[in-house]
Design a protein around this nucleic acid. Structure first.
Length: 565
RNA sequence: GCGUCCAUAGCUCAAUUGGAUAGAGCACCAGGCUUCGAACCUGGGGGUUAGGGGUUCGAGUCCCUUUGGGCGCGCCA
């Protein structure tokens, strides 16, 4: 049930009857006195057909006629149409709908996210891609799309030479690799300090690339251990990624030659200073020089651009993707523009297959500089999650000391992890954002703990009530607070659809926070348990629907909700 | 140098992509519990949307420009 689409449909019909075609531009009303929704499209159309906007709006309103849906549409200002939904319609809609409706046009969507480098341990730099990409994967799945998660991990490259050499020479087993970051630092130190070690490392890389069994075996062992580190982070974080979603860079090794050949056949390859490049006019600068995309180095080695091109071919030919979403740092915007343009020029994909870079900004500390640990280093993700749970435990213990330790810890996990995820998801994806423990763990404002708390309060109502409310009863809102709660509940679909097209999960957060606020107002003004029979039943249903919808919404973000807190 | 993203209340963030009087939370001030969880709710002050110009019925949003910052730019990923 998408309220906005329903209204848009009615408006479009009325416009057609009035001899107009175009988008009515229905939006949620800017202020309560403007109704629930407003149509802004008439003014722009009036200009096109050179007619008085107010008169034109009147003509549309006349065609709208009496309606089960809209109550007294009004024209305001230069030609806004204010739309108020009838209470009867809201009640019926509430009874008829639940959850999220599947899209009538399901598509196959590849979501490329997380993609850590397996040479090192996961750190905060991987957090945004992992969390945001996962939320979008859930949203698209909820809308009935076929979602294919692709964890494009970095498992290939020269740094593996030193890691494998160090592993072999130090006799390191999986226990020594428990601290992967420390292991990397140690290997790097030797690489820089010992020329012979560096030499052996390079030899290992050559062996690896030529498929030498011993090198391959050691490499595979290392990769497996590193991947298991990632998986444990994913499990703690509560993201959907599984080992089967991993499609590493190395998986495309055999496709790199063919990619170059295909580019050459299309006449796109130019040799420049010994390297193979693609020059496209679209990347010509003011000075007339074209920015190249290098696809093969002078020494014959390939680059990540080549791998990305191979991945596009795979996602087209094998995965049959209609749409590919890349949740990758904004700094790679130019890279993706180039790769996408080359993929187009080379016919690596049909024109109907959309490639979309979904960039995100940097996570900053309170000092507005890239987030670091207290000791000043790059923060490991595992340690960040430890701290989140510790801090949440302190908060929960302080607020509710009578809960036993085990339950407090379980709650702290949901609250702590939820807070970290929500603070990221609730900000506009493309901007940098400030990571602030105190703010994200606050029970006030647009935070996970506040939303979780609202759910806990509702549950508490049901613990006292002996009923869950009869959903078959008349749900027509009778109180202004019920009314605004009902509308907010029914907005779920339009919000989720926007998130799916734009890849901006903060829309869900804003809507959830609004829903929680509207519930709190309802809860303040409308007694539930002590109300008369009909009111009591209807309000119990409102409580139930709010709880279910909140949990559904938080679930779209991959955030769990404790029973009590 | 070229390209690109950004600058909104003291702080952290919104603003449905050009719509009406720019909204929230924190902080500050003032109220509300013998009553479903007050971890809450209600109200108030706080803004030349970095500066300037332009486009039009209408600009935080689009164009130009100045200032201040982030990032990227041929063989790392």
């Amino acid at each position: 049930m998408n309220l906005r689409s329903q209204l848009e449909l009615r408006l479009t019909e009325a416009m057609a009857k009035a001899g107009l075609s175009g988008n009515p531009l229905v939006q949620t009303a800017a202020r309560p006195e403007f109704g629930d929704y407003q149509a802004n499209g008439i003014m722009a159309l009036a200009k096109q057909v050179k007619r008085n906007p107010h008169e034109l709006a009147q003509a549309v309103v006349d065609q709208l006629g009496a309606s089960d849906l809209i109550e007294n549409p009004e024209i305001a200002g230069p030609g806004f149409i204010n739309l108020k939904l009838t209470s009867a319609y809201l009640g019926a809609a509430l009874r008829a709908s639940s959850g999220i409706d599947a899209s009538p046009h399901p598509r196959t969507v590849v979501i490329d996210y997380s993609a850590p480098n397996l040479a090192k341990e996961m750190h905060v730099g991987h957090l945004r891609s992992t969390i945001i990409g996962d939320a979008i994967a859930r949203v698209l799945t909820a809308l009935g799309h076929q979602v294919i998660r692709q964890n494009h991990v970095g498992d290939w490259g020269t740094q593996f030479g030193m890691l494998l050499t160090h592993m072999q020479e130090s006799g390191a087993n999986s226990e020594a690799l428990a601290d992967l970051e420390g292991f990397y630092v140690a290997a790097k130190r030797r690489f820089d300090a010992e020329p012979e070690f560096a030499e052996r490392s390079r030899a290992v890389v050559v062996g690896l690339q030529s498929g030498e069994p011993k090198a391959r075996e050691a490499w595979q062992r290392f990769i497996n251990i590193s991947l298991s580190h990632c998986q444990s982070v994913y499990d703690r974080l509560g993201v959907l990624l599984k080992p089967s979603d991993v499609k590493p860079e190395s998986a495309y090794n055999d496709d790199l030659d063919p990619v170059i050949r295909a580019l050459r056949e299309k006449g796109l390859i130019t040799e420049s200073d010994g390297a193979l490049c693609v020059f496209l006019d679209a990347f010509k600068g003011k000075d007339g020089n074209i920015l190249p995309l290098i696809v093969q180095k002078t020494d014959g080695g390939y680059l990540y651009a080549t791998t990305d091109l191979a991945a596009i071919r795979y996602r087209n030919k094998t995965l049959h993707a209609d749409r590919v979403l890349y949740f990758v740092d904004a700094r790679q915007a130019l890279h993706f523009r180039q790769v996408f343009a080359v993929a187009d020029a080379a016919d690596f994909k049909p024109a109907t297959m959309q490639l979309e870079h979904m960039p995100f900004g940097t996570m900053l500390g309170k000092d507005n500089k890239p987030f670091k640990t207290r000791s000043g280093g790059v923060a490991k993700l595992a340690e960040l999650l430890d701290e989140a749970e510790e801090r949440a435990l302190a908060v929960v213990s302080g607020k509710n000391p009578e809960l036993d330790a085990e339950e407090r810890e379980a709650i702290a996990r949901m609250v702590g992890i939820g807070a970290v995820k929500y603070s990221d998801l609730s900000k506009h994806r493309t901007n940098d954002y400030v990571f602030d423990w105190d703010q994200m763990l606050s029970f006030d404002g647009n935070t996970a703990p506040y939303l979780q708390y609202v759910c806990a309060r509702i549950r508490s109502v049901f613990r006292r009530a002996d009923a869950h409310g009869d959903t078959a009863a008349d749900l027509t809102p009778q109180h202004p607070a019920e009314r605004s709660l009902a509308i907010q509940l029914l907005r779920l679909q339009e919000v989720v659809e926007s998130v799916a097209t734009e890849g901006l999960p903060h829309y869900v957060c804003a809507w959830l926070y609004d829903l929680a606020t509207k519930f709190s107002q309802f809860y303040e003004q409308c007694p539930v348990l002590t109300a008369e029979a009909d009111d009591r039943n209807r309000r119990l249903v409102y409580c139930r629907r709010t709880l279910d919808t909140m949990e559904l919404g938080l679930g779209l973000l991959g955030i769990q909700v404790p029973q009590r807190m």
